[in-house]
């Protein structure tokens, strides 16, 4: 496919625009976190750091509870991911392949759950969790985040299952494989990229959740990263260096995860969407 010169110029300009729009903020934050305070608040900001210091990172890890928040967030996000997959996989398969009464209504209701304003359940959920002793405990957040990720997870896994050639499944059924064996040894390996995508989706949902974590957790030692970090924002007389270092560290886990499975996630997201 050939392009005219004019079109190439337009394309390059657009590319540059989007690269700057998305890339520059991250560049400024990462480089800002290693600048000395005077350079951070300089009247004329610098593109490339003129100074180098790790003082903001030192302060972040010694003077604040940031490491605790980080570990709490990792626990919540990992557990939410596992629970979401355990619940979504069989459900997606049932909605895709098995026939049962109420199937259409149940599926629609689940999709509706994806759209409704989550803040509605915040208040009653607090009361519910208080009754069963889950307030101020990490499992509460694992349950909530799983509930938020579940509708989309089921929807996405179902469209991945729909992508499996029917012959493969039929051959296995013909051989007399029980449903569970079929799911475990044939379907799951075939949709491994889809499972990875859904897993990342669940992880990110939990990793970024703020509102419920801020209300359901009361003690500082159990805060997740978004809530703990937002506390640091107000706690100090805006210490930009500390905040930029904190932001940089909060980016690292998801970016690392994404570096390994990002391409699969994106193609999973888009392939799941078109079916």
């Amino acid at each position: 496919m050939s392009r005219g010169l004019g079109w190439n110029v337009v394309l390059a300009a657009c590319l540059l625009f989007f690269a700057a729009l998305i890339g520059l903020p991250f560049w400024w934050v990462l480089t800002g976190s290693i600048k000395i305070p005077q350079e951070i608040i300089a009247r004329m900001p610098t593109m490339i750091p003129h100074s180098f210091t790790l003082q903001h990172y030192q302060k972040l890890f010694s003077a604040s509870d940031y490491p605790v928040y980080l570990i709490n967030s990792l626990i919540v996000a990992t557990a939410s991911t596992v629970l979401t997959l355990l619940l979504a996989l069989p459900a997606a398969y049932a909605f895709f392949r098995l026939r049962f009464p109420g199937r259409a209504i149940a599926y629609r209701t689940i999709l509706l759950a994806y759209a409704f304003p989550s803040i509605v359940v915040l208040i009653p959920l607090f009361g519910l969790f208080a009754k069963v002793g889950l307030v101020d405990r990490l499992p509460a957040l694992i349950l909530v985040n799983t509930a938020f990720a579940l509708p989309f997870a089921i929807w996405m896994l179902r469209s991945f299952l729909a992508g499996i050639p029917k012959e493969i499944e039929e051959a296995a059924v013909m051989d007399g494989a029980p449903t569970l064996t079929l799911l475990r040894h044939i379907m799951i390996p075939l949709i491994a990229p889809g499972i990875a995508s859904v897993g990342i989706y669940a992880f990110i949902t939990a990793w970024t959740e703020y509102v419920f974590a801020s209300v359901l957790i009361l003690s500082d030692a159990k805060r997740t990263l978004p809530v703990g970090f937002s506390g640091i924002i107000g706690q100090y007389q805006i210490d930009w260096g500390l905040l930029l270092a904190g932001a940089s560290v909060a980016i690292i886990p998801v970016v690392t995860l994404f570096a390994f499975v990002g391409r699969g996630f994106v193609s999973g997201l888009t392939e799941g969407a078109v079916k």
Binding site: F229, I233, L243
Partner: peptide
Amino acid sequence: TWIIITWIVPTVVVVVIWRWL
């Protein structure tokens, strides 16, 4: 792949980034 980076970082990070900028 990487265009979606704005969506995978926590909202609170987005907040810090833009509040500063």
